[in-house]
Computed example of a mutant assay.
Amino acid sequence: MFAPGQEQLSQEQIRAGEIEASQTIRMAISGGILLYLSPFAIDFVKKFL
């Protein structure tokens, strides 16, 4: 990564990597929240039916 002779990333590549990383973090947080809430949703549906 920091070895001499390697090419530098352009600003567009850095920005694309930042966007991808933030989307990955958002998806992981959203998935965690959905997994936490899923038992409550299942119980609600069972009681509703």
Rank of each mutant, 00 (worst) to 15 (best):
M1H: 09
M1Q: 08
A3T: 07
P4A: 01
G5D: 01
G5Y: 00
Q6P: 06
Q6K: 14
Q6W: 15
E7K: 08
Q8A: 13
L9C: 02
Q11G: 10
Q11M: 12
E12A: 03
E12P: 00
Q13H: 02
Q13D: 02
Q13I: 01
A16D: 13
A16L: 05
A16W: 12
G17H: 06
E18I: 06
I19M: 04
E20L: 00
Q23F: 12
I25Y: 12
I25K: 15
I25D: 15
I25N: 14
R26D: 08
M27A: 13
A28L: 13
S30F: 08
S30W: 04
G31Y: 02
G31P: 04
G32V: 03
L34D: 07
L34H: 05
L35P: 15
L35T: 13
L37Y: 08
L37S: 09
L37T: 10
S38R: 08
P39S: 02
A41L: 08
I42T: 13
I42R: 13
D43E: 15
D43Y: 15
D43G: 15
F44A: 07
F44C: 08
V45W: 10
V45G: 07
V45S: 09
V45E: 11
V45Q: 11
K47C: 04
K47W: 06
F48G: 01
L49W: 07
